[in-house]
Design a protein around this nucleic acid. Structure first.
Ligand code: MN
Ligand code: MN
Ligand code: MN
Ligand code: MN
Lengths: 218, 218
DNA sequence: CTAATAAGTTAGAATAATCTAACAAAATAT
DNA sequence: ATATTTTGTTAGATTATTCTAACTTATTAG
């Protein structure tokens, strides 16, 4: 079995690879807030365990085994978040920190039960896909709201880089997953969008916001 | 904050103190399956942190602070067990191992929510008291079934030293908390009891069993 | 009341995870 | 094409948790 520490490295590697393609030791170090030499030796250790491909001065890559392990940890994280929201009635802004700890539990029955209680969900409360039991993720084709044009009508489907503050902002504007948003116009100046949704006829969303909202075209 | 490791020492000290009164380094070492010298240095470390009273060659004692910390960990353990049984429909024999891990989560909101969902329970699924929010435990006055006399009618209120196998044995006999048991006779030879309860007119319980069942007199 | 046994302690070593300082390689900017 | 900066690596140290071997104190049995 892998330690709590090793699991956090795997998960960070997996997430960085999906965000940026290649993963450098430097990015990993920043993401985990752990100094480079520590990361470097951990990479050698994970390479020993056949979880990472490591070659001096080359970008870091997870092996298939590493990807699977990471996927299974992320599965536990996202199932937990879904459980906390659906069953325990937490807000979507409250669940990440708790899931960050619970993802390290070694309790297959517990997560099986969660999964069943939730009806085998495929996305978490923030719209991110839940990896299957073999650790595989199926990515949806979402667009950033910031890449849409005036006149488009879209459905809010996922939130990325969601911090506590950002979720609170979305709550205060009544923005939840599933909400239909109509883009009325876009300011050339600062790329802010004038949109309407639900009972709101005219809301303004800054580029900082629209960049973090993933939508599906209607 | 205390490490996972330190928390397990505190909990073991607390439980041993309640079972046996005084706690020796030797017993603690056996309970935790950690060698004596390791336990010895951990005791010095916990003494530094004012969690344990340590004097060479004297029995170990938790400080008030230590008792409180231990109580709060046990609170999390037992709330978790109750949640797993009541909300997630696990069997009482399945929950201890999961709770053993979850008791170390640092997530006050999570346990608050559990507590509320359960209606602020005072006992766990095995009949053990759940410490309050200040870590205090209120002990109930239970008797061992093995200490009762022929003719007594009692209510099964708690199970001690409950292993997986023991819970499965109780399940197979339909013995749950709350069941009314009438003691028909006791074998002098081996102290086994002939009892009746529910629809069972004549069951035999060995001393090994009756010793682990705590009951209330009717 | 010794002698033997059990319990507790000290010393020294190992592994995991982290750090800082120093050095090497690769990438970037004149 | 060099100089500078950034990135990656190595070396050496630190803290936490554990161990075995050796020694000391306390308890128990004759
Ligand atoms: Mn999350
Ligand atoms: Mn984590
Ligand atoms: Mn338990
Ligand atoms: Mn534990």
């Amino acid at each position: 079995m892998h330690s709590y520490t090793e699991e956090n490295y795997l998960k960070a590697l997996f997430n960085l690879a999906n965000e940026k393609g290649e993963v450098s030791a430097n990015e990993l170090s920043k993401r985990l807030e752990i100094k480079m030499p520590t990361v470097n030796s951990m990479m050698k250790k994970l390479a020993e365990k056949k979880l990472v491909h490591y070659e001096s001065y080359k970008p870091l890559r997870l092996t298939d085994k590493g990807k699977k392990e990471a996927g299974l940890i992320i599965r536990k994280h996202r199932l937990t978040e879904m459980f906390l929201v659906q069953v325990m009635e937490f807000g979507w802004e409250q669940v990440h920190e708790i899931a960050e700890q619970m993802e390290h539990l070694h309790a297959p029955d517990f997560f099986e039960k969660m999964d069943a209680m939730l009806g085998y969900p495929t996305i978490d409360p923030h719209g991110s896909p839940i990896p299957d039991k073999s650790g595989k993720i199926s990515w949806k084709q979402y667009d950033k709201l910031s890449d849409c044009k005036a006149g488009d009508t879209v459905k809010l489907s996922a939130v990325i880089n969601g911090t506590d503050d950002f979720f609170k902002f979305l709550n205060s504007r009544g923005l939840q997953l599933g909400v239909k948003i109509k883009i009325k116009s876009i300011e050339v100046f600062d790329k802010s969008m004038h949109v309407s949704y639900l009972k709101k006829a005219n809301e303004t969303l800054s580029h900082t916001v629209t960049e973090r909202l993933l939508v599906e075209m209607e």
